[in-house]
C-alpha cells in the first residue's frame, strides 16, 4: 500500500514540476517522472508477495510458475510504455533543442507567440 502511495506521490510531483516550472527541460523531466510513476504503478499491480520472476526455468514446472510467478503482463506493458516514453522523450528533447535554437531561451513562458 505504501508503494502504491509512493507512485501517487511521484505522479503528483511530476505534475507539479510540469505545471509550475517554467524551464523546458524541467517540464520534460516532469513528464518523465509522471510516466515512471505510472510504470511503477503497473509493476506493483502485477507484484505478488514472495513471487518469482515469470520466467520458466528448467527446474520448474509450468504449474509451479503459475502458482508462484508474478503477473508477467504488467511487465510487458511497462516495457512497451518505456519504449513509447523513450520515443516521446527523444522527440521532446529534439524539439526542445530546436526551440532553443529559434528562441534563444529555455523559459517556456516566454515562448508564447501563438495565443488568443
Amino acid at each position: 500500500m505504501v508503494l502504491y502511495f509512493l507512485s501517487l506521490v511521484l505522479f503528483v510531483m511530476g505534475l507539479y514540476c510540469l505545471v509550475a516550472k517554467k524551464n523546458i527541460v524541467k517540464k520534460i523531466i516532469g513528464i518523465t517522472i509522471i510516466e515512471y510513476s505510472i510504470n511503477l504503478f503497473l509493476i506493483l499491480i502485477g507484484y505478488r508477495r514472495g513471487g518469482v520472476a515469470p520466467i520458466l526455468m528448467k527446474d520448474m514446472s509450468v504449474a509451479e510458475l503459475v502458482e508462484r510467478g508474478v503477473d508477467p503482463l504488467p511487465q510487458a506493458l511497462v516495457l512497451t510504455s518505456i519504449v513509447i516514453g523513450l520515443g516521446v522523450l527523444a522527440l521532446m528533447v529534439g524539439v526542445c533543442l530546436r526551440l532553443y535554437e529559434k528562441y534563444k531561451t529555455f523559459d517556456m513562458s516566454e515562448i508564447n507567440r501563438l495565443r488568443g
Binding site: V93, G94, L97, E101
Partner: peptide
C-alpha cells in the same frame, strides 16, 4: 540515430551559445 542527431543539434546549440 537519436543520439547522433541530438549530438549534432547539441553542437549546433553550443555553437550558438558561444556566439552569444
Amino acid at each position: 540515430a537519436i543520439f547522433i542527431a541530438l549530438a549534432i543539434f547539441g553542437k549546433f546549440i553550443s555553437g550558438l551559445v558561444e556566439e552569444e
